[in-house]
Amino acid sequence: MTGTQEPKHKKDLTRRKVVVAGTAAVAAVGAGGALAMSASADEAADATSTASASSTAEVCYKLTSETTEGPYYIDADKLRQDITEDKEGIPLTLQLKVIDSETCKPVANAAVDIWHCDALGLYSGYESFSQGGGTAPTDAPTDAPTGTPTDVPTGTPTGEPPSGGGGGGGHEEPTSDTRYLRGTWKTDKKGCVTFKTVFPGWYQGRCVHIHTKVHVDGEWTDAGYEGGHACHTGQFFFDEETVLLTAEVDPYSTSTTTRTTLTEDTIYDQSGTTGGLLKLKYNKKNIAKGVTASITMGVDPDTTNDGT
């Protein structure tokens, strides 16, 4: 791009251009009532001493786990903090902080992407691929076959399981122009960024999660964010107790999709905060009023982790 500086990491550059949209104020979670909080037990252990008696350099914060980006990532996304659009669901305020895991210094002016499915498991741009599940049809057939099938296949299946589902597999090209529940915004001087969205639902084969990417060494222009490289590609996760509460709230309660639990998920590495487990605050007696989720991501700005 004419007039812009050449990013440092030439071999891993990917051009990113985001459409600038008007920003929206982040709505506060409804106050009142008892707050429920969840955090992994190892969160306090993530931070360690930055120096030792022998002056040997030590990592001050654990690197946040890298994951695949999944098949539903869209590079050219909207520059905004409120990604809700008109989607229904429990209000979710997502508070993120990005720090250098070696120095513990905040990573300012990074571009943070988030994207996730809606309350019924559908991804914008990929409704025809997504495996969401809504209310069961009322005109289900009454002449379903009975008895035991006689042509059941035998032997051990071979080959790879089907890809997709937002966890692994190759990238899929979008099949629609919708872009709800996707957005990009920059971290402030403290490495912080906040998004307003709705609590994600679930779909076949995956627990409830949010995808994220952190881009550095690019440039913010009038057109958005360009150049640079992704130093982190990960996912955020929610504890089981909270997900069970959301499942009782409409429209989540109308889902007919079998839900994969946090311990059953094949992407979450069971490492708590390091693996992307969010700290949550909400009114336990009325979760429908909203949830605040927060996490600190320890990244290596000099490394490329594009999740592909």
Score class of each variant (00 low, 15 high):
9 H>E: 03
17 K>H: 06
266 T>C: 03
160 E>H: 09
81 Q>E: 09
161 P>Q: 10
166 G>R: 00
280 L>F: 02
43 E>D: 12
289 K>D: 15
221 T>Q: 05
48 T>D: 05
13 L>N: 01
3 G>E: 05
214 V>H: 04
234 G>H: 05
29 V>I: 15
269 D>I: 05
118 D>C: 09
152 V>D: 11
46 D>V: 14
36 A>C: 14
48 T>L: 10
249 V>M: 02
108 A>C: 03
195 F>I: 07
169 G>L: 00
200 P>A: 07
119 A>K: 05
249 V>G: 01
140 A>Y: 10
168 G>Q: 04
69 E>S: 14
175 T>V: 13
139 D>T: 13
196 K>L: 14
205 G>Y: 01
135 T>Q: 14
126 Y>T: 01
39 A>Y: 12
296 T>R: 04
67 T>C: 08
244 L>H: 09
40 S>F: 01
35 L>I: 13
125 G>P: 08
134 G>V: 08
128 S>R: 07
60 C>M: 09
214 V>E: 01
298 G>T: 07
144 A>Q: 12
276 G>L: 01
280 L>I: 07
134 G>K: 04
159 G>S: 08
9 H>P: 00
148 T>K: 13
189 K>Y: 05
11 K>G: 15
261 T>D: 01
108 A>N: 04
203 Y>N: 06
48 T>M: 13
292 T>H: 07
254 T>M: 07
72 Y>K: 00
96 L>K: 00
241 E>F: 13
209 H>R: 11
271 S>F: 02
245 L>I: 03
136 A>G: 06
183 G>P: 06
263 T>M: 08
52 S>I: 04
226 E>I: 12
227 G>W: 02
122 L>M: 11
86 D>Y: 06
133 G>K: 04
254 T>C: 04
225 Y>G: 01
300 D>A: 12
21 A>P: 00
279 K>L: 02
135 T>M: 12
30 G>D: 13
292 T>S: 15
254 T>W: 04
75 D>L: 13
236 F>S: 00
235 Q>S: 14
4 T>K: 06
93 T>I: 12
85 E>A: 15
137 P>I: 08
300 D>V: 12
134 G>A: 07
